[in-house]
C-alpha cells in the first residue's frame, strides 16, 4: 500500500511517501503564498522521486495549517495527531513531544503513538520561531548564526520580556548597554527555552521526549531546552517531516 502525507505548514510544505509502512522518499519546500500549489508541487515531487504515478497512490492525507484547503487529500488530520504518529514511528518509546514551528509551539503527551494531552501556544509569538526571527533581526545577525554565537557566551544576558515586540526592544537596549552579541544571542535562546519548558512541565514531560519542528535543527536551543528540563531530547535527523510522516502513516497501525 502506498500513501502520501502532506504537511501544509505556514512556512514550509513537507511531503512523505511511504510504501507498506516504510518511508520511501520525502521533500521539503517553501510554502510561499499559495498553500494549494505548494502542496501540489510537493506531492508531484515525491511521486517523481519514487517513480510512481498518481493512480498507484492509495491514500493522500493532509495535515498542517493549510490541511483543510487540500482538496485532493482523502482526509485532513490535525498536526498534533500526525506529529505523535510520526514520532512514534521513529521512536516508539517516546511519551512526550516538543514541537517549535514558525508560528506556534506545541507540547504533546503521548502513549503508544496516541495523543493523551497537548498544549499549544499560538496567540503569542514568544516561544516560537517568530521570536527568534525578530530578536535575531534586532541583533542584526542571520537567524542561523544565533546558535553558534550563543555557544560562545559565558555570561548570557537575561531577556525577560514575555512579548516578542518588547523583547525586540529589550535586545536593542542590551546592545546600547554594551552586551556582546554572543551574550545576547545566548539570552534569546535561554528565553525561548524557558517559555517552552514551562509548557513541557505543565504536561509533566519528564523522560523520552522528542524535539521536532524547524527550530529543532538549532542545536543551541536543543541544549538550552535540555538544560532547562534536565533531560536529553531525541531529535530526528529530519525534525521537520514528522508531521508529514505521521500523516502518511495515518491508516497503518
Amino acid at each position: 500500500m502506498i500513501s502520501v502525507g502532506l504537511d501544509a505548514g505556514s512556512a514550509t510544505t513537507k511531503a512523505v511517501l511511504i510504501k507498506d509502512g516504510r518511508k520511501i522518499t520525502q521533500t521539503i519546500r517553501p510554502t510561499a503564498f499559495d498553500f494549494i500549489s505548494a502542496a501540489e508541487i510537493a506531492y508531484q515531487e515525491v511521486l517523481d522521486h519514487a517513480g510512481i504515478g498518481k493512480k498507484d497512490v492509495d491514500h493522500v492525507y493532509a495535515t498542517g495549517y493549510g490541511r483543510n484547503s487540500i482538496q485532493f487529500a482523502d482526509k485532513a488530520i490535525s498536526e498534533i495527531t500526525t506529529h505523535a504518529k510520526g514520532v512514534y514511528h521513529l521512536y516508539p518509546e517516546v511519551n512526550g513531544i516538543i514541537d517549535i514551528g514558525g508560528q506556534d509551539s506545541k507540547v504533546i503527551s503521548v502513549n503508544d503513538g496516541k495523543v493523551t494531552d497537548f498544549l499549544m501556544n499560538d496567540k503569542c509569538a514568544a516561544g516560537t520561531g517568530k521570536f527568534l526571527e525578530y530578536t535575531a533581526r534586532a541583533l542584526e545577525v542571520p537567524i542561523d548564526d544565533l546558535g553558534s554565537l550563543a555557544f560562545d557566551s559565558e555570561t548570557p544576558a537575561s531577556i525577560t520580556s514575555m512579548c516578542t515586540v518588547f523583547a525586540e526592544s529589550e535586545v536593542i537596549s542590551l546592545r546600547t548597554r554594551g552586551f556582546t552579541k554572543q551574550d545576547i544571542a545566548a539570552g534569546i535562546i535561554e528565553s525561548i527555552a524557558r517559555r517552552v519548558a514551562v509548557m513541557a512541565r505543565q504536561l509533566e514531560l519528564k523522560q523520552n521526549v522528542a524535539f521536532v519542528g524547524g527550530v529543532a535543527k538549532n542545536t543551541a536551543i536543543k541544549s538550552a531546552l535540555e538544560k532547562e528540563l534536565g533531560i536529553s531530547l531525541y531529535v530526528p535527523a529530519e525534525p521537520q517531516i514528522t508531521g508529514a510522516l505521521g500523516a502518511a502513516l495515518y491508516n497503518s497501525n
Binding site: A76, I77, S78, I80, D104, V115, F118, M120, K123
Partner: peptide, 28 residues
C-alpha cells in the same frame, strides 16, 4: 476525563487556531 482549554474573545481572529485544537481534541 480529558480536557481542552480554550481562552478566547469575541473576535474571529482565532477561529483557525481554535479549530486546530478542537480537531486534535476530537481525534484524541
Amino acid at each position: 476525563i480529558p480536557m481542552l482549554f480554550v481562552e478566547t474573545d469575541y473576535s474571529n481572529s482565532d477561529v483557525e487556531q481554535i479549530g486546530l485544537r478542537v480537531d486534535a481534541f476530537m481525534e484524541m
